[in-house]
Simulated assay, not measured.
Amino acid sequence: MRDAIPSLTIVVPCYNEAEAFIYCVDALKNILIDLISKQKIQENSHILFVDDGSKDNTWLQIKQAAGQSSYVQGIKLSRNRGHQTALIAGLSAVDTDVCISIDADLQDDTKCIEQMIDKYIQGNDIVYGVRNDRSTDSFFKRNTANIFYGSMSAMGVNQVENHADYRLLSKRALAALLEFKEQNLYIRGLIPLLGFHSDKVFYTREERIAGESKYPLKKMLALAIEGVTSLTVTPLRLICGMGFLTCFLSFLAIIYILIAKFSGHAVEGWTSVIISIFFLSGVQLLSLGVIGEYIGKIYMETKQRPKFFIDEKTND
């Protein structure tokens, strides 16, 4: 149990969220005011919006909200860097006892924020927000999500199923997360590696409050590839296994061909040869593609480039 009342930062990455912003800021401000009145968080608690190079007037709305309320702060990245980098940028700016990350679309139940604070006070350094009902998702979205989590688990990526980036981190858990310096970020796979005491809160996924989803199928596939190649070498091991299997099948084929040759039953034709060439060529190209993905990540990591640049802050 923790006795001291914590200060809280709610980190909200935003990309073209002009339509949803007004609903998001009002909902989160009401949560802060309620928790402060209940003396569960300190009065210096606030919301930190991170504009990930939006093309609409999201940043203008953030600045206006910050000028009207002491509960709102904002930072603007110099260009669009993606959700995971924007989230890390926001987390890097946190200077409070705890932080909670949440998306601006309000599909994650904001009422769970109080439950997360309660679990932090009970002694947890990490509290995961986990969806236990995706009935508001389309059939396609729901099933691709299940395939996504199943595939990631099969590849050896340790993550909490049906948990995205809605979570609480204590100050020491956040400090540990920021120790990871890799360029290729998959935060939901890094959090379990921290090893601190954790718990979960469960909620029903709501419909998007406004605007369009920022995670279509293309980005979901990119995120899955990022997670697998950043956290596990299972694909490389699969290539090794596939190589052994191919060699074994080729060895059997050689024995069969020699037996047929010496018994006088060899059948002339190109079918088997062509099939073999195409099969082995496909295996080689696939293997080179997977290996190339890993080599590309090594190349990017060795450059040690900055993950982001902050263009503007609301308190400048």
Rank of each mutant, 00 (worst) to 15 (best):
Tyr203His: 15
Ala164Lys: 09
Glu179Val: 05
Tyr149Met: 09
Gly150Gln: 06
Val160Leu: 10
Gln183Met: 13
Ala210Tyr: 00
Tyr166Asp: 00
Gly189Ser: 10
Lys181Met: 07
Tyr166Pro: 00
Ala173Val: 03
Ala164Phe: 14
Ser170His: 02
Phe196Cys: 12
His197Met: 11
His197Pro: 07
Glu179Gly: 08
Glu182Pro: 04
Lys181Cys: 05
Arg188Ala: 14
Phe180Arg: 12
Asp165Leu: 15
Tyr203Thr: 08
Lys171Ala: 13
Leu178Gly: 08
Leu177His: 02
Leu169Ser: 02
Leu217Pro: 04
Phe202Met: 13
Lys200His: 11
Val157Met: 08
Arg208Ala: 07
Asn158Thr: 11
Asp165Met: 13
Lys200Ser: 08
Tyr166Phe: 15
Ile209Ser: 01
Asn162Thr: 07
Phe196Tyr: 15
Asn184Cys: 07
Val157Lys: 04
Ser153Val: 09
Leu185Asn: 04
Leu168Thr: 00
Arg208Val: 10
Arg188His: 14
Leu193Gln: 15
Asn146Gly: 11
Arg188Ile: 12
Glu179Thr: 11
Asn146Ser: 11
Ser170Asp: 01
His197Tyr: 08
Val160Ile: 15
Leu193Asn: 10
Asn146Tyr: 10
Glu182Gly: 14
Leu178Val: 08
Glu179Ala: 12
His197Arg: 14
Ala210Gly: 01
Ala173Arg: 00
Asn184Gly: 05
Lys181Ile: 04
Gln183Ala: 14
Ile191Thr: 03
Ser170Val: 01
Met152Gly: 12
Tyr215Phe: 09
Leu174Trp: 00
Ala145Tyr: 06
Leu174Ile: 03
Glu161Thr: 14
Arg208Gly: 08
Asn143Asp: 11
Arg208Glu: 07
Ala175Gln: 14
Phe180Cys: 07
Leu174Ser: 01
Asn146Leu: 12
Ala145Ser: 12
Tyr203Ile: 06
Ala176Asp: 13
Thr144His: 06
Thr204Cys: 15
Arg188Thr: 14
Gly211Pro: 00
Ser153Cys: 12
Phe148Ala: 12
Ser151Leu: 14
Tyr215Leu: 10
